[in-house]
Design a protein around this nucleic acid. Sequence first.
DNA 1: GACTAAACCCAGTAAAATAGTCGGGTTTGT
DNA 2: ACAAACCCGACTATTTTACTGGGTTTAGTC
Lengths: 162, 162
Amino acid sequence: MRLTTKGRFAVTAMLDLALRESNGPVTLAGISERQSISLSYLEQLFGKLRRASLVESVRGPGGGYTLAKDAEAISVADIIVAVDEPVDATQCGGRENCLGTNQRCMTHDLWTSLNTTIFDYLSKVSLASLVNSQRTKDVNVLQDQREARPSRRSRSESITGL
Amino acid sequence: MRLTTKGRFAVTAMLDLALRESNGPVTLAGISERQSISLSYLEQLFGKLRRASLVESVRGPGGGYTLAKDAEAISVADIIVAVDEPVDATQCGGRENCLGTNQRCMTHDLWTSLNTTIFDYLSKVSLASLVNSQRTKDVNVLQDQREARPSRRSRSESITGL
DNA sequence: GACTAAACCCAGTAAAATAGTCGGGTTTGT
DNA sequence: ACAAACCCGACTATTTTACTGGGTTTAGTC
C-alpha cells in the first residue's frame, strides 16, 4: 500500500462528504472550496471513488455526491486503494523467478507481510470513526480558541511527526 | 509518514546489510547486485542512512557499511524516516490559521493521529525481526521448491494486496 | 423550452518526486 | 603506487502529482 498525499486528499474529501451528506448530495465545488483542493483534481479522485463503489453521483442541478454505503462500511484503506493505483514494489513482480539466488523473493515476502499488516490496520479505521473524532475535535477547537495563543504547535512538529 | 518505493528500497538494502554484516563490512556494490538497485542510488540512500546514524562506513579496500547499532535497535520506521524526507500533508502547514471556518485543521488533526499510529506500528518492527522472519522464509522457499509448480501466486495478488 | 447547475470526460501541463547516470573526488589497505 | 571502496554534486529521464481548460451530458427550474 502506498501512503501518499494523493490518498490523504481523497480521505480528506471523503471526510468532508461524510460530514455533510445528511443535507443531501454534496458538490465537488463545495469540497473544493472548503478543503482547498482543485475541482478538476477532485473530479479525477471521485471518478475513481465512484468506480470503486464508495460514492454515488447525482447529476444535474442540486446534484453532487453521496456515500454509496454507510460510513461504518467504508475504511480508510478502501479510499486509499481506490485512488492510489498500486505499483509493484518487488523487483520480482510478485512472481518467484527472481535472479536465482537464495535471496529470491526476499523483498516480495517482506513487503507483502508488512503491507497486509498496515492494510489491516487501515481497514479497521472507518470513515464513521473519523467523523466522530472530527466532531469531538470541533469542540476542542472551540476550547482552543478560548485559550491564549502561545500554545500553538511548531511547524516542524507536524512534519517530523511522520 | 510516507510509504513509497524509496523507503522500501532502503529497507530492502538494510535487510541485505543486516543479513551479511557478520562477515565484516558489506559493500554497496554487493547490495546493488543482489537487490538490483543501482549503485549510485544506493550511495544516495546510504548517505542519508549514515547521517541518520543508522549505519557506519569503513572506507578503503575491504570497507563497506555496517549497522551503527544493534539490529534490534533499528526499526523500519527509522529507516523510512531517514530516507524519505517528509512533505507537509496538511494544507494549513501544521499551523492553526487555515481559512477561518470550523473546518480548520481538520486534515491536520486527522493525519497527525493516523500518522503517529502507523509510525508507532512501524517503530515496533525491528530490523532484527525482519532478519529472523527472512531466515525462516529461506526455509520455506526451499520447501516451496520441493513442491510442484502450480501453486504459484498470481501477479495481481501481490499488487492488490495493499 | 431555455437556462443553469451540476456531474462527467479528456487532453494537456507544470512541478515535484523517483530512480538513475556521470564524473569527479577522498580515504586507506595491500 | 594502486585499487577498492566511500563520498559528493550536478545532471537527466521517467513517473507521479496536482492542476487548467475545454467540452458533453443530465436534470431541475423558471
